[in-house]
Structure formats: structure tokens, C-alpha cells
Design a protein around this nucleic acid. Sequence first.
DNA 1: CGTATTATTGAAAGCTGTCAAAGCTCGTGG
DNA 2: CCACGAGCTTTGACAGCTTTCAATAATACG
Lengths: 200, 200
Amino acid sequence: MTTGIAITRRTDQQQASRIAIFANGQTIYADGEKCDWAYRIAFGAVSLYRVLACGRRQIVSFHLAGEWFGIEQGRRRQFTAEAIGPTGILCANLAADQCPALLPAVLDALWSAREHQLVISRQSSHERVAAFLLEISERTQDKRRFDLPMPRADIADYLGLTIESVSRAVTRLKCSNAIRLVGPRGIEILDRDRLRSFCD
Amino acid sequence: MTTGIAITRRTDQQQASRIAIFANGQTIYADGEKCDWAYRIAFGAVSLYRVLACGRRQIVSFHLAGEWFGIEQGRRRQFTAEAIGPTGILCANLAADQCPALLPAVLDALWSAREHQLVISRQSSHERVAAFLLEISERTQDKRRFDLPMPRADIADYLGLTIESVSRAVTRLKCSNAIRLVGPRGIEILDRDRLRSFCD
DNA sequence: CGTATTATTGAAAGCTGTCAAAGCTCGTGG
DNA sequence: CCACGAGCTTTGACAGCTTTCAATAATACG
């Protein structure tokens, strides 16, 4: 988030063939910047967010290893992109003709964004957290046992809840034996159908 | 957002294509169908929604005259598209090489979807309704005085609220002299800054 | 091993949802 | 032209859920 980091950041990105490494909390690009590059995650995770005038931070999407983000041709950055934990990032030129993978990636992003709209627009805290765990599960290697890359605060800002509500929902899912917790970050899905039954 | 110039240009190119007319409430395509075409609205309005297992209907986007919708290459339809009032629709082939306007349209849709995420994820009912009125205002001809194409139920399903909450919020905006109502559908923005101050 | 950070739990307040009823619009038909 | 009625909108009261505020517990890290 500091200016000093931002300066070195740009320099690293110019070497487009290499992987740029970002530390936890480091900004990859900021809200309002020019859109020079698209990005793909080699390892780690990234959150896209905006801090609203009232001080609330809303995360609009998480991106995990192998996924694209930052495709925003011909505009200023709509959100800030920030690394969650140590994260390796590949840069690609934004010109569509040089990268035919862009359109499918944008269609995927639109698909995901709209599915997420369904989750956050009306559902209860338990439904949202259950849907979130299933979503992350589907996007990781081991779909039964995985570690959440982000803290509760990030989950809360993504689901439109408070940290406390997320915590209470997790506890409730745990008590219903749908999941098991392995420390605060470790999640084991014990009963996927039951977890799914919490959604909508 | 598609510009007026872009609309005219496309229309000239596609004079051969027919306009399909849909009545109020008529389905243009349904959730789960094959994605054969992309669509552009000549006049009227369209809502994209899904009915969840619990019976709730969530509208993920509204589309007004001149706007694209239904670009979902290589998948089944994610949502149902329905006409709001009498609506004229132009069909276009989904192949990207035949229509270079598709990528910008998808980027616009992603942009809008994520802005909408900010509105529905956390904001109060007043904030949501104020943001909604400003959004529609920006997308219509007369930005100060316009008619909402959709009933309260559609607004509620779009904002993740109930009809009653939408009504209460509109009343509150009216009482604060930010807007004036001209019948249930007619909106006149009296104080845009005040209306904006309700958002976040 | 101690401390700072993060997560959980508890109690009360506030806001939206639900249920119920009344008011308003507008098209239809007398 | 007016009265009627169906549908939509507004308003009210209460319950339920999430937020807020506060404190405790667990974890991570030096």
C-alpha cells in the first residue's frame, strides 16, 4: 500500500517474461491506475477490492492459482488488486489479438461475478459462508481438505458480512458436522451435501 | 456503456437482421438453454434473472435500449432473459470474429456487474435504492426526469430487498427532497448531490 | 515464552423481512 | 363520463437476523 512499494512494483512488472513476487498485503495495481497489463496467478491468491467513501472495504473477487485477473481494456482500474500471502504473478499484454485467452477469461469472470451476486444479494450469513466454502473448494486442488488463503476479515468483506457473523456461521456449520476446522484457516468438508443444503 | 455513435454504426451494419418483438414478461431465452445468439435491445428493457430453489427470484441485471446482453460463449444460459414491457430485440451471431463488439460488451457487463456487487453487498436499503435511481438515470436519455421501466417487485429482486423496503426507501428519498415522484413509475431527480450522498 | 494479531463468543440495538391492511392507478365496461 | 375492480404501491406493527460493542480465547511469530 505504501508509495515506495508501488514504485518498485511497476519496475518488476516491466520484465513481463518473469514472475513477479508479491508479499502479503502488497498492491499489484491500484484503483484508478491505467490498465497496462492483464495478470495470471502462478501461486498464492489475490483480492480485488475498493475502499468506499464511508471507509468500508468491499472485496469483489478472489483469484487463486491459475486464474486470470485485471483484464479491463481501455479504462482506469475499477478496483485495487492486492496479494493475499506470498503470491507469484505472470503479466500479459492486454491486446486481445496477442492473447486469445482474454475473452474466455472475461466471460469466466462475468459468470463468477453474477453467481456471486446471487450469493450476496439476499442469502443469510450461513448460506453465504456455506456457498463461499463450496466455491473455494471447487477452485482448489484438494476439494475435501484445504486451507483458506485469507483471514476472516477478507471473507467478511467479500460476503458483505461482519467478521463476527462469518465466525458465527462457521461455528454453526462446524456444529452441524458439515465441516471440520483445522485451526482457523484449515477446512475439511465432512458432508458436502449438508453444506450444499445450507445454500439458498 | 455503449455510446450512441456505436449504436448507429452497428445498426447500419446489421440492417439485414430482423427485430424480434417481445411482449411484457415474455421470455427471450431460459436458464439452461444453449447459447446460440447474442442480443441487442432496440427499444424496451430486459431483465436477467434466476429463480432459486427456495422460490426467490434474483435479477442480476437490467438492460436498456442500445445495450447488449446474452453473450455467454460455449456454455448453457446462466440466467433467464425476460422482456420488461414491449421490447424490440436484435440478434447477432456469437462468433467473436464476426462481431468485434462482443469483447467490449462483455467488459462493460463485467464492469457493471462488479459495480452492482458494491451496491448490494453491504449497503442499506436507502443506499441501494438511491444508487439504483442514479444508475438508471445515467443510462436513460433525460437524466433528470425519467420513467422506471420496471415495477417495484423487479427493483426489489434486483437490489436484494423486499417490495416494502424499496417502497420505504423511495418514500424516504422523496421526503428528503432528493427526488420527486410522478406516479409510481415517474422519477424526477431534484437534488442529485443529495441523492448521491445517500450512497455509501 | 510472551506478545500482538486473529478468531470466537456474548448481549443489546438497529434494520429489514414478514404479515396485514389501506391507498392509489389505470384499464374496462356500464 | 363515471364507476368499478384488479393490480400495484404504500404504510403499519412485530419478529428475526445481523450489526455493534465488548470481552475472552486461540493462534502466530519473534
